[in-house]
Design a binder for these strands. Structure first.
Lengths: 357, 357
DNA sequence: AATCAAACCCAAACCGCTTTGGATGCGACA
DNA sequence: TGTCGCATCCAAAGCGGTTTGGGTTTGATT
């Protein structure tokens, strides 16, 4: 059933039927109701392909996913973000299109999205420092929104991000307040912007207490279970940390494995704080979370990002907006006071007491 | 730059330019080359919206994701499947569209995909027993392919699936051969088809050795870390298993936590075999896998599924094809001989020796 | 009674491509 | 020389909507 058939059946012109269905004012209310009823009765759905061509809009948002030969963006965080964003798109009549391409074809993928008219806007994932994709999207002239930020980028651009620096700063302070001074940082890859910011938060918090960071206590790698395990193992074997600050739930599991493998107990012998993206299938425990964590729902971030992008598309020409989400600090079972130093191994460095926030 | 402009610039009709670019025979080779060159030079990309309308094809495949209020399909397995499928789509000039909808809107989502002409076909995820979506898709009349199978469905339908029954049967036999007789099954939700098949494999293998399954050693829940932990804890505390068969890497981590929390060592005191979907960011260790596992790449499954579906769309009317993928049994560090039974606790049931496959 | 503005509705153009149904020109064949 | 077939190319008709630019009525205004 298409517009023309429906119009014929109603004894009206396609024009009127179209207007009636789309809520234009120049149609009699009685007529409109008649049209609406007929449309429902015949289960009429306008053909999206025709609407797209006629209006010149794609009614779709693109997400380009470089099929990383090296590093994976197709990760659990991405899945939850997508779920949040997709929900918003559906509610607004937009389609979500995912473009999975080899990473050397990413630029072309963006260009095609624009020149072939497949998407009205795109969301940029996993920005890096000085990310070249931001100037690229500007040049292409397609509305976009960044999930995260790109340190070093001059051009203004709209974004939504978690306050990663602050989250890790708070987490570090929390550990310091518990008496920990040898805190290992198991970070994500530090060409990723969020990882840089997290390290900054960690370093700043240490510096505020007069502690200079120990390079042996700082690692940076992909956020997998195995690399969490490796990093923590190396630190435990060489630099005697009493606490860890970990980039994700998954690497946190590796860290826990390293700890327990050494006969230590997490939360008693070694404290751990992770960043928790609040993934739906990787919940951090129930009433009492397993891990103490800085928590921020990436699914909510997806929802917000989608809403912002649709806003940009609806009102072009406005100044780039942005949104900084704060992470909660959730207290779980994985943190506790720093263990009493071994009396044979000298005194621990003293820290100024500061109230727990 | 559109077709008409390009044609004018070349002094040709749109018809000829279109044919030249699409490889039709009725155009002079010299002309074709001239057209191709000009198209490249002016960076001409045909407008997808127009192609779609003109050809009546959507050039897109839909994936409907019910935004589970209860159970999550937006899970890591899904993400990797999507990556595999998306790769194939891109290579073939298809778009992948994801429809994230509340789960009571799933049926309508499929209907709309068809009636609005948004997708040429769909992939059905996470089939359940007697899944109503299969008759639905038949009725709607949209080409589709099922990732998994639906026990109890009469209608023929194309699918790609892992041989879950066999995988779990082999894994169980492997444990039996190591002398384990009290094997806990930490299964996925058993209205999911794959979970049913896995249980069947487990039960069959036990039965073949004359062991009747102990209900206390069988659990079924979502495949999260926490539920793996809960299930394993309960079994360890009440039914003294010496081995576990676990539905996923993630729940396996919970099982491991339960084991280690009790001061037991995985691989020595308690053996564990998981099913490993070979997720890119959740690799099961390196040279020596952490977990002994039945492994089958869900990403490959995505690729295969996409190829099959595109084939169905290209050659409609053929009988439904299918593909059964066998899982490998990977030996890792998490399995070992059953511990000598406590001499005070009586004899263990004797099993017939059978060669390890 | 003539005028005019709403209120309603419609015919036709248009979006940018594909495809049908010819034209045209030219060498070959009878 | 007339006809035919083949190689090339083009005009125009879709595809299924939206939107522009009028037409008709109708009721109020002067």
């Amino acid at each position: 059933m298409n517009l023309k058939e429906l119009a014929t059946k109603l004894g009206l012109s396609p024009t009127t039927v179209s207007r009636a269905l789309n809520g234009y004012p120049e149609v009699n209310e009685a007529t409109r109701e008649r049209v609406m009823a007929a449309a429902k009765r015949h289960n009429y759905r306008p053909n999206t392909r025709a609407i797209r061509l006629a209006t010149g809009r794609a009614l779709a948002i693109g997400h380009v996913i470089p099929l990383a030969t090296r590093h994976e963006i197709v990760n659990p965080i991405f899945a939850d973000f997508i779920a949040g964003a997709g929900e918003t798109y559906s509610r607004n009549g937009y389609d979500m299109i995912l473009s999975v391409v080899p990473d050397d074809a990413e630029e072309q993928a963006y260009r095609d999205l624009k020149s072939r008219g497949t998407a009205d806007g795109v969301i940029l994932h996993a920005p890096r420092m000085n990310d070249p994709r931001i100037p690229l999207l500007h040049e292409i002239g397609i509305p976009f929104l960044v999930h995260g930020r790109a340190t070093g980028t001059e051009l203004p651009y709209p974004w939504v991000d978690v306050n990663n620096r602050r989250a890790f700063q708070r987490a570090t302070e929390f550990l310091l307040d518990l008496g920990h001074t040898r805190i290992g940082l198991v970070n994500g890859l530090e060409f990723m912007d969020f990882a840089i910011r997290r390290r900054t938060g960690y370093v700043d918090a240490l510096a505020a207490r007069g502690i200079s960071p120990d390079p042996r206590l700082m690692s940076s790698d992909e956020m997998t279970e195995v690399s969490g395990y490796r990093a923590a193992s190396a630190m435990l074997d060489s630099a005697s940390p009493t606490a860890f600050l970990v980039a994700s739930m998954i690497s946190g599991m590796g860290v826990r494995r390293a700890i327990e493998e050494r006969g230590l107990k997490m939360g008693r012998d070694v404290s751990v704080i992770i960043h928790d993206d609040d993934l739906s299938y990787l919940k951090n425990g129930g009433d009492v979370p397993i891990f103490t964590a800085t928590r921020s729902s990436v699914r909510d971030a997806g929802r917000i990002a989608a809403e912002m992008l649709l806003g940009i598309i609806a009102n072009p020409g406005e100044a780039p907006d942005h949104r900084l989400l704060e992470a909660e600090l959730i207290i779980g079972q994985s943190t506790g006071p720093a263990p009493r130093p071994d009396t044979t191994s000298g005194a621990t460095p003293q820290t100024t007491p500061v109230k727990v926030q």
